[in-house]
Every structure is written in C-alpha cells, then in structure tokens.
Design a protein around this nucleic acid. Sequence first.
RNA 1: GGCCUCAUCGUCUAACGGCUAGGACACCAGGUUUUCAUCCUGGCAAUCGGAGUUCGAUUCUCCGUGAGGUCACCA
Length: 475
Amino acid sequence: MTTVRTRFAPSPTGYLHVGGVRTALFAWLIARQNHGQFILRLEDTDQQREFKGAKEHLIKSLQALGLDYDEGPDKGGPFAPYIQSERLEIYQQWAQKLIQNGRAYVDPYSTSEVQAFRQQASLAKKPFLFREHRPDLGAAWDGTKPLRFKSDPKAYSWHDAVMGDLSSKPEAIDDFILIKSDGFPTYNFAHIVDDAEMQISHVMRGQEFLPSTPNYLNLYEALGLDRPILATLPHILGPDGKKKLSKRDGAKDVLEYLELGYLVESLISFIATLGWNDGTTQEIFSREELVEKFSLKRVGKAGAQFDERRLNWINGNLIRSMDIHKLYQSAENYWPESARGATESYKKAILVLVQDRLKYFSELSDLTAFFFEDLPVKPELIAQHKQLSSLDHVLLKQLLSSTKASLQESDFSVEDITKRLNDLLSATKQKPVVLFSLIRIATTQSPASPGLAESLSVLGRAKVLDRIQQQIDSL
RNA sequence: GGCCUCAUCGUCUAACGGCUAGGACACCAGGUUUUCAUCCUGGCAAUCGGAGUUCGAUUCUCCGUGAGGUCACCA
C-alpha cells in the first residue's frame, strides 16, 4: 500500500474563499485519516495574475483554519521547492522527454493566427481543435515559441472517487500548450509533473477541470506515469444557487469570517457538510470526527449552495455549548471600546447573560455596550413602543420614581431585584410589558436585553439608579 | 454551438429496487422564560417531465427538459 499524499495547490492570485477552503479541507482530511502527508504547493506560473501578498495570505488562512501541511514553500520537504516558479528546470527536463518521444512540438503560430483558426471553426459551427492545424513537427525548440503536447485522441473511461465512472470521446482531446513562450509551464503540464515528482496519491480539485481530464489522462500515458486517484469536487454555488461562488456574490475571504467572530470549528463543520454527510442525522462535526468519518464516496455530486444561515446556526450552537472560560477567551477581541478597563469577572458575568443570543462574536459589542457606558436617552424607544407610546409622561415618571425608590433599598442580588420588581407590579397595577419595558429602556436604552433582573444585578446600584433618574429627567 | 457533468422540501441533505419519501437550517404557530434570544411541542414544504425494465422505481435504462462547467501562451 502506497502512502497517501494529498496536496492543496492554489495559485497566489487572491484570497482563500469558502470553495478553496473546501478543496483544502477535503485533501487535508484524506491525508490525516490515512496517516499520510498533506502538501502545500503554490502554482504561480502566471506572472501577470500574481497578486502580491497572496502567498502570505494563503499560508495565514490555512494556519488559522488548522489545516497544517507537512511540506510546503515555507516548510520545505523532500521534494522542494514547492513553488512552481522555482521549478522551471524540472519542467524543462520533462518537456525534453516529450520532445524526444515525438510527443511535443513547437507551435509556430502567432496569437492572431490561432485566433483566426478559432473563428473559422466557430463560423463553421464546429469545435475548435488545434490538432487539426498541426504544423510540421520537426522544428527545433529554442524556447521562444510555445511548446505543445502532441495528443493521441482516443476514448477514455475512468473512475473518479466522487463522480463515479466517467467517460469521454476522442473529440475531448486536443493539443495543448506545455510550456509558454515566456518559459513558464502551463497549469496543465506543471501540475502533472509536480504531482508525479511529489508522489501525490490523490488529486482533488474543482469541477472546472473535468473537461480537461481526458487531456491529462493522455499526458500521463505519454509520460509513462500511473495516474493518481482523481476526485472531482462539485462547485459551491453562490446565494442565487446558480453560478459558482465568486467574490462578486459576496464570497468572503475565510479570514473575514474569522474576524467577524465565527469559530474555526463552525467553519470547518459547515464547509465539510456542504456536500458531505456521514449518513446519520448528525449535523455538526468536530475536526476529530471529520478525520474519522469523512469519505469521498459520500461526497455529493451536485453543487451545493452556500447559505450563511446554516453557518449562523452552527456557530450559535457551538457558542452556546462553550464553557465560560473558553467563551471568555474566544470573545476577547470583540468587546466594545468602552469595555477596556472592565474586570474579567464583570465581563464574564455579562457573557453568561448574552451567551444564548450570540450568533457570532462581532455582535457582542452592540449587545453589551450598555453595560460599559451610559448611552444617551433615546426618546424614540418610548415613542415607538406599542404600549408605552400611548401613556402619559407623568405616569411614566411616577413609575420610574417608584422603581428607583424601591431599588435604592435593594442589595442588588438577582433574587431581591426579582422580588422588588414583582412587588412593584402589584403596587402599580401595571402589566409586565409596560413596567418592565420602561425599566429596560431606562437602564439599557435598548428595546431588548438579557433578563431584566439579571442585567440590573450585573449593572449594579449606582448605574441603575443614575440611568433611571436620567430617563425621568428627559420625560 | 461542440464536449463534460449534474438534477429529492426555499436551503443543506437521508433513503441494499420495498413502511405514509426521513433529518437539519429557514419560515409559521403554540408553550416555557414577565422583552429579545435560548429551550420544548407542532406545522408548512420535495423526488424536473415522458417512456421502458420490474410484482414494485427517488433509486436501473433510454429520450427529453433544465442548470452548471469547459472549449486560453488562466488556473
């Protein structure tokens, strides 16, 4: 049995989004569950599209997600270098083999000439095949012209670990460029050479490569290589459910999700279950469970639509299941500015109150600001309140005064506050909605808050009495 | 247009050819929590169409239809 070696091979042309993460995650899972190796390789053969900083960004994203790799550009390994632009001689050597075999030739045409062939074909309503325009194959290659693969068109049928049995006809095969006129290999050539050199056992990639797979099979044969296990992952679709997820559809950089306060565990579970499940009714999986249970056979063939609501549910669910210490650590960077000087115990008391309401941590600031700062009185909260808006301000003042008077005597334990609030209810003959909404507005300047007695207790006597007075003064 | 692939609730999905097509998200309603959220209960909601094989088809075959991908000196 050969060692399982998988790779993630992005081109450094942008950030890592959900689709890319899934490819990386699945490859990582296969490597880990088989005690194999996971490799990061950068495919930077297009100098035009290269994006500065992308390489660092990619590495940082994988790190943040806990998708650790055993070999890679910044780590080295037995098959270094892991950046394609530093492997040009290797591609040259393999290209020479093909030239000697008679399976590669110089493409003498200019871009406009090829373009003309293409137009011709399109006018004739026929598919464009470069091999129908093959030139004399004898010309020597000096590196200033592109080098093309001389294909051997034939039908193929092969097995894909996700898609099952696939097949294609000879028309799917054509002569493609191996080495560009700038000396860089194309993806089509470089990835095959590298996967072979690096002894990759499973090639996982998106659906967009399916049409060119027959060409790759043809090239494996020409190079005398065994083909690796192929696994084609269906696309993740944008919110419209049609097109492949892209930046334009709001596909966020994964780091953005982490900055918004989504847990790594949520993202991993969410992305893994976008197209995969273990056949049971389990909905959320830990990293360890995924390593144990994941299988390419159970990855769906159809594209899955990206739906943030499910991610929100998973994240809220995981937040609710956290103990207070973990919660405190995870929330560390999301407190409002005004929380700066607050003590750990005060913040923990608040977290206990808001834990059930958090979907992701960047909501924390708005949810808890009133615990740390006196917010300006907002008259619209009363004006727009169903019950309070119709009441006379004199009455409202009276209610607040009675509340203040009672709370002045309280020890501010939750129990005592609860008792006093209930007493006030019967003393004033008001409905809970009226009295409690009024107190809530006065003390939090918000239409909704955690439990009233609990909130008041955490806020403490000074702030509560002061804010009630402010509200009275504003009426 | 050629080629390749796909097709179950709005969304993610389950169902050796065999219960009334199951679960989850979302949504709606009720209950608990004196607000919101949580939690509990219930509800709404799907096999793209047509043939064929079969005692029986979501499942297998064919033909349609629809969708996506791809036809680069991008990956």
